[in-house]
Design a binder for these strands. Structure first.
Lengths: 187, 187
DNA sequence: TTTTTAATAGACCGATCGGTTTAGAAAGTC
DNA sequence: GACTTTCTAAACCGATCGGTCTATTAAAAA
């Protein structure tokens, strides 16, 4: 009998991709075991709480990644640096829209009601961090808020359309448009 | 024994709301019967093909509604009239983001692979009809295309964020911003 | 009225669901 | 080497899944 040993970090990353592709309800335990090669024994060893705990830990992991890679830089670094790094981070993370935003996808159906605070906190912090950076860069409060909202909305919408149209180009094109619009507002 | 008689049109509308709230995989037959009060007998009488046929008919119904209420007007009517009617139609249909776009939601997970052509066709026709109207209104080809894409993406993104933040205001605010931006481009 | 048809209610089916348990393999500890 | 701990594999569980079937009802057709 062959035995493969996994780290919990690997388990989180592997299971995350299954949720991303199938959604919370679509990701059955048998699909998760089939796609990740993690047995049920391993999965329930790492996540005694089952699917709900898996999803919670995955969301916490994603949120943590965005905090260090995007939100904290926006909150602490020089606006022009942090903002242009934000566009690069988004482009790299979502891979031309082939990789969706799991937290955004969970928001659309009743999965939202299982994790309302994580979902809300993730997007609120993104918008607030970006708006704060824009204010530091010299924009008025209202304009900064609108531009930040517009950027996050644009990214989420672009992910939906990239998948709907099976069009890799639309996501990068949208990111470029959003970036230019923001730079124009910053003069 | 109480017996309620339904029309197929009612069945489509009722089941559509369940899919909208729970997603394709989340909408189990027992949830559908519980929420719609349609028995399994009735459901399989109207939709012998089961869940897949329900979803297909619902999407066709939604697509047809958008064609008559939004796409055809954009293709045939005076641009300024059709475009401002588009914003009203979107505002009315999505109800401040409390009602999501089912076709957009299906695009995000592997439900897309069950209905790829309907999903792609719906968004492509929306973008094309809007871009065509903008060209008729005097915009250059590239600018019209970008603005149309931007509008549809903005609506989809705003739906995601309205639900994620549990914020009714953000959807209408985004629609207003998109509308003003388009009017500014049309001078 | 009688017959036929359209439609509903819900018991029922095998398959799959999320989750538990048991057995045992690898790795560390002494 | 003996013992303990950590982790994996897979059989197994009751519940629920999507879907079928039968009985019954109401209305249309005759």
């Amino acid at each position: 009998m062959v035995r493969t040993v996994f780290e919990k970090a690997d388990a989180i990353a592997l299971v995350a991709e299954v949720f991303r592709e199938l959604g919370y309800e679509g990701a059955s335990m048998s699909e998760i075991t089939a796609r990740t090669k993690l047995s049920k024994g391993s999965l329930y060893h790492f996540f005694p709480g089952g699917k709900e705990e898996m999803a919670a830990e995955i969301m916490a992991h994603i949120d943590g990644w965005f905090v260090t890679e995007m939100f904290r830089p926006l909150e602490e670094e020089e606006p022009s640096v942090a903002i242009s790094r934000m566009w690069e981070t988004a482009e790299g993370y979502f891979r031309s829209g082939r990789r969706i935003c799991l937290i955004g996808a969970f928001a659309l159906d009743d999965t939202r009601d299982r994790f309302p605070s994580v979902i809300q906190g993730y997007f609120q912090r993104w918008i607030d961090a970006l708006a704060g950076s824009l204010i530091k860069a010299g924009l008025r409060d209202g304009e900064a808020k609108a531009l930040a909202e517009d950027a996050v909305i644009g990214i989420q919408g672009a992910l939906t359309l990239a998948r709907a149209l099976c069009d890799d180009a639309i996501f990068d094109r949208t990111l470029t448009r959003l970036k230019l619009r923001m730079e124009a507002a910053l003069k």
